[in-house]
């Protein structure tokens, strides 16, 4: 694709930092990440607990608790608006409408004392100018769309009468209610059994093919990423350390963390003689090292890694594959080293 034919991204996040106050000090859980989401694209955010992947989604939607959290960004652009500077009132019109979210726990995200049909209708009542009958018709359509069997008779049932997989389908129906441009799915299949997970993944793939929605899919499961994503951003301790097309990332994992992660997953489709183990653990937010945050666990670490965080640079000019690494990335190291000494 040439620069001139580039399509306008649906969502463009630039230099997003989300910090939390711990004992009077502010610590960044997400630090200066940038990415954009193309129309009808699924971008996977992958990483282990505490890497900032969920915080990224909550920051986009303005759902980070204000008491202890702070979201800063150059911009979070969606439909010509900068979400990072939008007043609460305006933000509410976007949440569940232009951008909606699917959470991990379908058990706790549904209201147990309201019928599921009512909960699907709720989003429509708030955002769309439909008659009561029109709303119910649309809600039924949605429940059919997410393949809830005999949706009509189950419309008035309560969440406890639904299985885990069916509840997650209801959550997806709610998220789709207002035909959002962007869906943020935060580990939507993690709590489900594998056969149910497979069904939900194929449902999401179908929905994506049928509508023009884009999706940010947050997960720690590399198998799920491979089954669903178009592009992948790997996160570690608040940084995007590698971003690439899904085929490229799995064929050519370049950041030492990505590579180690792939070698750490036992696979069901082939024999693994020895499993690679990344030594150590992610440092706590309050004790992040200087420089590259993966240094302490990295086999390739050199001096500069301990001093300065590397930039996220394309592997080659114009390459969509970018890596944040002094050793594996494409940097003019000599020039950067001089900067480091300053």
């Amino acid at each position: 694709m040439t620069a001139t034919s580039k399509i306008e991204p649906v969502l463009d996040v630039s230099n997003l930092t989300t910090s939390f106050r711990i004992g009077g000090e502010w610590y960044p859980a997400v630090r200066g990440i940038s990415f954009s989401l193309q129309p009808n694209e699924t971008l996977a955010l992958v990483g282990e607990s505490g890497c900032g992947k969920s915080m990224t989604a909550l920051s986009v939607l303005g759902l980070v608790p204000k008491a202890n959290g702070r979201v800063e960004a150059d911009h979070i652009r969606f439909e010509g608006k900068d979400l990072s500077r939008l007043p609460d009132e305006e933000m509410r019109k976007i949440r569940g409408n232009g951008i909606s979210m699917i959470f991990q726990e379908p058990m706790t995200s549904l209201n147990p004392v309201l019928p599921v049909g009512f909960q699907v209708v709720e989003a429509l009542r708030y955002h769309q100018n439909l008659s009561r009958a029109g709303r119910e018709r649309r809600a039924l359509e949605l429940l059919d769309l997410v393949k809830i069997p005999s949706a009509k008779s189950r419309f008035k049932e309560y969440p406890h009468q639904f299985s885990g997989g069916m509840r997650q389908r209801v959550m997806i129906a709610m998220a789709l209610a207002c035909r959002p441009k962007v869906i943020l799915a935060d580990e939507p299949t993690t709590a489900l059994d594998v056969t149910i997970q497979a069904q939900i993944l194929s449902l999401l793939n179908e929905l994506k093919a049928e509508t023009d929605m884009s999706m940010i899919f947050i997960t720690h499961n590399l198998g799920v990423v491979a089954a669903l994503a178009d592009r992948v951003a790997v996160m570690y301790a608040g940084d995007i350390v590698e971003i690439a097309g899904v085929g490229d990332l799995f064929a050519r994992p370049t950041h030492p963390y990505t590579e180690a992660l792939l070698r750490s997953v036992p696979r069901s489709d082939r024999d693994t003689k020895t499993l690679y183990s990344i030594p150590g653990a992610v440092p706590p937010l309050t004790r992040m090292p200087k420089g590259c945050r993966f240094t302490a666990r990295c086999e390739l670490a050199v001096d500069i890694c301990r001093k300065q965080n590397p930039p996220l640079d394309a592997l080659a000019a114009g390459d969509a594959h970018s890596v944040r690494c002094w050793v594996r990335g494409n940097h003019d190291r000599a020039a950067l080293k001089e900067n480091a000494d300053v």
């Binding site: 594998v194 056969t195 997970q197 497979a198 993944l201 499961n221 590399l222 198998g223 799920v224 990423v225 491979a226 089954a227 994503a229 899904v246 085929g247 799995f250 792939l262 997953v265 696979r267 069901s268 489709d269």
Partner: peptide, 8 residues
């Protein structure tokens, strides 16, 4: 149903 880390 078990996802495999291989997009191919």
């Amino acid at each position: 149903a078990s996802p495999v880390p291989d997009p191919t």
